[in-house]
């Protein structure tokens, strides 16, 4: 049987190769502790990737995911710091991401702004609004009495760090949602062909809105994990390169930016490769600018090979498909 060479398989093969290579070369690489550390290091990235993947499969992109994560959680922590009961603060933070998701979704689905710009603008708005109106500091410290919430970032179950468990749970949920539920299939439907989906009678627009709400909720969850792990939330990550890393893990695994293709597995494969790379290179004490170059070159190789193996055709290429 001939195995078609898809981007996912290429990336998976790369990840396995690298893993094997590091295991041979680096003495302490292949220990249970290090493998857990490896996955632990990219679990938040993986969770954000899942949220992004849901949007990308529906032919969108969510550039506001990092801003959503940083501001909603920072606001929650800030309220808790100032004595608002933790439950209320969490609900308000959750409400914030839902509201922002609704606005973004409305802009994309009903105003018909291209997602790239709707989320770019919303990202700028969310960060700006948060910094100007909600928060007075860049870095919000975790309140001392956060209690069980701390488990999200620092707890263990049977020796496995909580973030890894949460990544697994999120993956399972996303898998079930995308594979077996009606809304999940709808997302594939309109991600593949919006006009056809609409003509077929699928309720495209409400689901488009829902996509952004989902990615907002995922961002909030990822933010809670991040914040509890380091006991603070730094809103400056919005200006950093995290958003590019999130897109990286999504597309690296082969979720097509033109929509309708890929799934949870692809995100996990992409996350795994990044995890192996980062961990191995950190052990080898490679400077992180060099790590960035290596990371990018691997992505480049993956998409070049993909393009050579599955070339795009001028006749079928979609207009405005960048």
């Amino acid at each position: 049987m001939k195995i078609a060479l898809t981007q996912e398989r290429i990336v998976f093969a790369l990840a396995v190769l690298l893993f094997a290579g590091f295991a041979i070369v680096l003495p302490n690489f292949l220990t249970a502790g290090n493998v857990l550390t490896l996955i632990r290091g990219v679990s938040v990235l993986g969770i954000l990737g899942l949220g992004m993947a849901v949007v990308v499969i529906g032919r969108g992109i969510d550039l506001s995911i990092v801003a959503n994560m940083a501001i909603s959680v920072a606001w929650t922590l800030d309220m808790a710091d100032r004595g608002v009961p933790l439950g209320v603060a969490l609900s308000l933070g959750f409400g914030f991401v839902v509201l922002m998701g609704l606005i973004t979704g409305f802009l994309v689905a009903y105003v018909e702004i291209p997602p790239l710009f709707a989320t770019l603008a919303m990202g700028a708005f969310i960060y700006g609004f948060g910094r100007a109106a909600l928060l007075s500091q860049d870095v919000i410290q975790m309140p001392a009495h956060a209690g069980i919430l701390n488990l999200a970032g620092t707890g263990h179950v049977l020796g496995v760090p909580m973030p890894i468990i949460l990544l697994a749970v999120a993956s399972l949920l996303a898998f079930l949602f995308l594979r077996y539920t009606r809304p999940g299939r709808t997302i594939y439907g309109f991600g593949d062909n919006l006009q056809a989906a609409r003509i077929t009678g699928l309720s495209v627009r409400p689901m488009q809105v829902a996509q952004y709400v989902i990615s907002g909720i995922v961002a909030f969850a990822a933010g809670i994990i991040t914040a509890t792990a380091v006991e603070s939330m730094n809103t400056r990550i919005v200006n950093g390169t995290l958003i590019y890393d999130v897109i990286l893990v999504v597309v690296l695994g082969g979720v097509g930016l033109s929509g309708g293709k890929g799934g949870v597995r692809n995100v996990l494969v992409g996350t795994l490769l990044i995890g192996v790379l980062l961990n191995g290179m950190t052990i080898m004490d490679v400077q992180y600018t060099v790590q960035n170059v290596v990371k990018s070159l691997i992505l480049l190789v993956a998409i070049v090979v993909d393009s050579l193996v599955n070339p795009r055709d001028e006749q079928t290429a979609q207009q405005g498909d960048i």
């Binding site: 502790g33 290090n34 792990a229 004490d285």
Partner: peptide
């Protein structure tokens, strides 16, 4: 010096780097 890494002023990155270094 077993590790000399930049964390970009970011607590999460510092955490990931330190965790790996402590593993090793």
């Amino acid at each position: 010096v077993v590790s000399n890494q930049a964390a970009d002023w970011d607590a999460s990155k510092a955490r990931a780097v330190t965790q790996t270094v402590l593993q090793q």
